[in-house]
Nucleic acid binder design. Structure first.
Ligand code: FES
Ligand code: FES
Lengths: 150, 150
DNA sequence: TTTATACTTGACAAGAATAGTAGGGTATGG
DNA sequence: CCATACCCTACTATTCTTGTCAAGTATAAA
């Protein structure tokens, strides 16, 4: 019951992009260096987010990635769903037909109700936090550090 | 972000035991047959639950397993924590020292707040449902089926 | 006492998923 | 034209999952 690094790396990269939303394209290598993530691996993740309409890319020198929407419009759930496949805790209750696996028991299984409640709770949390929230939080922390240092 | 079959099989087995809580020991093979789970595999799961004080065993003919506490006192969270290791969605926020992995970023990582909220939501759901709830539900369904069949 | 039943334990193994690497190709600003 | 940076596919090492297998122990019943 663990999220893969795809989601955790991807979210951290997206927060980086949210923090520099108004500063043009940011390169993969910049993010990879700052977050200490393999460049090649991060390439795959950001590319997947681009294909799903979450990022736009600029090629050539000074190129990089930019959020395709305002940070407010991208939730953690959006990112996790793209990178993880879905957010369901068991295949029985995923709503993505592609991932749904045979579950003959679904009509009688007493556990199903629990998994459905769990899936709802997970989605509620993940969809309630967007990149603007996280960027603001990150900004506040930087400001706080500055205050302490003087 | 999927629970393994350890949790899902284990929970189903425990609900079976809850349904027959007053009928003495139930054998692994009975449960395995009813739930269509490999006997050897289920052995491992139930034994782990026994070591953690969730089950008691009776050896020899007519032996089997019995819940070590009243169904009301065993939650889905208890079972998942034993069989899955813990319920945290990322290693960064597990409260089990054994599983906690190096996360140098934990003091600065902006994502951590999300994972903590998520971990809380997951625990809230899993700890809010106990075996008595599930057994009652299973019993109701049987009754309902009977009503229809006449 | 013998025997069949059923739990106990540890080792092993196939398959899938994860977490990357590697290496080419394409677009573009300078 | 060339250095930069995205684009895309394939491959690999490691770990986790999902079991199987074999040998042993305890006990109720015949
Ligand atoms: S086995 Fe699929 S819902 Fe229980
Ligand atoms: S990397 Fe551990 S909390 Fe973000």
């Amino acid at each position: 019951m663990k999220l893969s690094t795809k989601s955790t790396y991807g979210l951290r990269a997206m927060v980086n992009l949210a923090l520099k939303y108004d500063e043009g394209a940011i390169s993969i290598s910049d993010i990879a260096k700052k977050e200490d993530i393999s460049v090649s691996y991060l390439e795959q993740l950001l590319n997947r987010l681009r294909h799903k309409g979450m990022l736009e890319s600029v090629r050539g020198p000074n190129g990089g990635y930019v959020l395709a929407k305002r940070p407010k419009k991208i939730t953690v759930g959006d990112i996790v769903r793209v990178l993880e496949g879905d957010t369901a805790p068991v295949y029985c209750v995923t709503n993505q037909a592609r991932l749904k696996r045979s579950c003959r028991r679904s009509t009688t299984c007493v556990a199903k109700g629990v998994w459905e409640k769990l899936a709802d709770a997970i989605d509620r949390v993940l969809d309630s936090v967007n990149l603007e929230d996280l960027a603001r939080q990150a900004g506040d922390e930087v400001g706080h550090e500055k205050d302490i240092s003087r």
